[in-house]
């Protein structure tokens, strides 16, 4: 037979345990979940063809390629229909052949843009040195053309010169 004080101790411990359980129940963590969501529009993609000054650049004679020429650089851009984009260029100041430089420049009307792939001759002119902000077509397309001028010196070393032209396109958010 248990001593009365032992029984009391067991009872107190049991009560304490019960109270702790109850306490645990009312202080238990509760959770709920909601969703964060959002829809991303079509990212911009761009492909390009080169700006070609041909194989007959005479030393001492500038040579230009118009933005409407078949030798102009062309860029085909696609993205979300009817959204506004900004196009900017990183333009070279020289074409390079080894240690030799051939100066190249771009006038304020050497860029042209159109929402039609066949719109080169009627494209809207812009200054490629400052870029342009315009709107993609209702099918999400934009076409850009770029001409330029090379200025060889009278003693320009013969050979093929090249340089990179980089176009960057971003959405404006409009």
């Amino acid at each position: 037979m248990k001593h009365p004080s032992t029984s009391l101790a067991i009872a107190l411990v049991a009560v304490a345990g019960l109270l702790m359980v109850l306490s645990g129940q009312v202080q238990a963590q509760i959770t709920t979940t909601v969703t964060a969501s959002g829809t991303v529009l079509t990212p911009i993609t761009v492909t390009g063809t080169n700006l070609s000054f041909g194989t007959s650049i005479f030393p001492g004679i500038n040579k230009s390629v118009a933005r409407t020429s078949a030798d102009a650089a062309s860029f085909t851009i696609s993205g979300e229909a009817s959204k506004e984009v900004t196009a900017t260029f990183t333009l070279p100041t020289n074409l390079v052949k080894g240690a030799d430089n051939l100066p190249i420049s771009f006038s304020t009307t050497d860029g042209g843009h159109s929402t039609s792939s066949t719109g080169q001759s009627t494209a809207t002119a812009f200054d490629p040195n400052s870029g342009v902000t315009t709107t993609l077509s209702t099918t999400g397309n934009l076409y850009i053309w770029l001409g330029g001028t090379v200025s060889p010196a009278h003693n320009q070393a013969a050979g093929a010169y090249t340089g990179d032209i980089t176009i960057s396109l971003v959405y404006t958010g409009n």
Partner: peptide, 21 residues
Amino acid sequence: THTQPAGTYANDIVLEVQYTG
């Protein structure tokens, strides 16, 4: 990102609450 693929993205946000006592 600039090249983020189009579409609807989602994930859970969980809120947890408890009494302090």
